[in-house]
Amino acid sequence: MENFWDKVLQFCQTTTKTVGDRLIADFGKIQAIQKEDGSLVTKADRSSDNELRTAIINTFPEHGVLTEETTQIFPDSQWCWIVDPIDGTTNFTRGVPIWGISLGLLYEGTPVFGFVYLPQLRQSFYGYWGGNSGLEIPTGAYLNNQPIHTNQDSPSKSHLFNLCARSTEILKNPFPCKIRMIGVASYNLLLVAAGAAIGGVEATPKIWDLAAVWVIVQAAGGKFIFLDSKPVFPLQIGQNYGNISLPCLVVSRAELVTEFLPLVEFLGKSN
């Protein structure tokens, strides 16, 4: 199994670097159009989606693929990749160099490996989290091949908590930390895994925003909470995940759930 994980990591590193280099050439130069769900898409999203999907099929022909821009129905496959070709399309089109490529690998419907590459920041996050899968996995989280861990501090006004654009209603009440808005769902939560932020929340993310990050955050020692009471994993075969939002809270350690959950849990009730 060790050779398999080496192959998975090398594939992600090589493929996202190739796709990322091509996307940099379009950075800030192309227009986006609005999809039915209100999110943006560009020709770069679609070409990146196609390139990533083709690379997965050629390298792992027995694996299924679910992507943001192509097939959003979860397949009947023991292994499945979930792809976000450009996380942060608004940043990408507006010339803000914080955007990424996200790849999550699921086993029997649950993520066990995640990889997120931010081309212009030259940052590669990845992690392994076996959970109850029964797989032999080298559990851990990494940034540019160096181990990362969540921040173990107690919240204060000198610590950061990340919001998304649709969660600003939280600020109507006093909040224990400084607020940041990144504009990229994956990076928002990965900053918790890396210890830069103590928590983060996303109000309307989709499965391609979270599949990779769910692994990395937990492998780094963080706690990932879905605000809807319904279980998310394992994903259901035949389910279309294109219009399903998955509001979530991420905190740097389990003990902080009781402090932050009451402040953000209303986001789950509104979806």
Rank of each mutant, 00 (worst) to 15 (best):
T90N: 12
E2V: 15
G134L: 01
F260R: 00
S167T: 10
F60E: 07
V8A: 06
C248Q: 07
W99S: 03
T89Q: 03
G140D: 13
I57E: 15
F11R: 05
Y187D: 11
E265S: 12
R253E: 10
V65R: 00
D49T: 01
T18Q: 14
V8I: 15
S102F: 00
T70I: 09
C164P: 09
T70D: 13
D6T: 14
F226N: 11
I30Y: 00
G38T: 08
T110G: 06
F175E: 02
F233M: 04
N271F: 15
S158T: 15
L40N: 05
G114A: 06
L121E: 11
E62F: 11
E69S: 08
E69W: 03
M1T: 14
A185Q: 15
N162E: 13
K35R: 13
T168R: 14
L261M: 14
F113C: 12
V251C: 04
N91F: 10
P205I: 02
F224D: 03
W214E: 10
L163G: 07
V184Q: 07
P97C: 00
D26S: 15
A203K: 01
W5T: 06
N3C: 12
P147Y: 13
D228P: 00
S77W: 04
K269G: 10
W208C: 02
L135K: 04
A44V: 06
Q218M: 07
F115E: 08
P155K: 11
I182D: 04
F266T: 07
T16D: 02
W81K: 06
D228W: 05
W129M: 10
V96E: 07
K17Q: 08
S186P: 09
L263W: 04
D21I: 08
G238D: 02
D84C: 03
P174I: 05
F175M: 01
E51M: 14
N162A: 15
G95E: 11
P119N: 00
L121D: 00
A254Q: 10
G28C: 09
V215N: 02
W208P: 01
V257E: 14
I82Y: 01
N271C: 14
N91D: 10
S39A: 09
I82W: 02
T258I: 09
T93N: 05
V96K: 08
N58W: 11
P247W: 07
T110Q: 13
V83I: 15
T89G: 07
G221M: 10
Q78N: 14
K223S: 14
Q152S: 13
R166F: 13
D37G: 05
S48V: 07
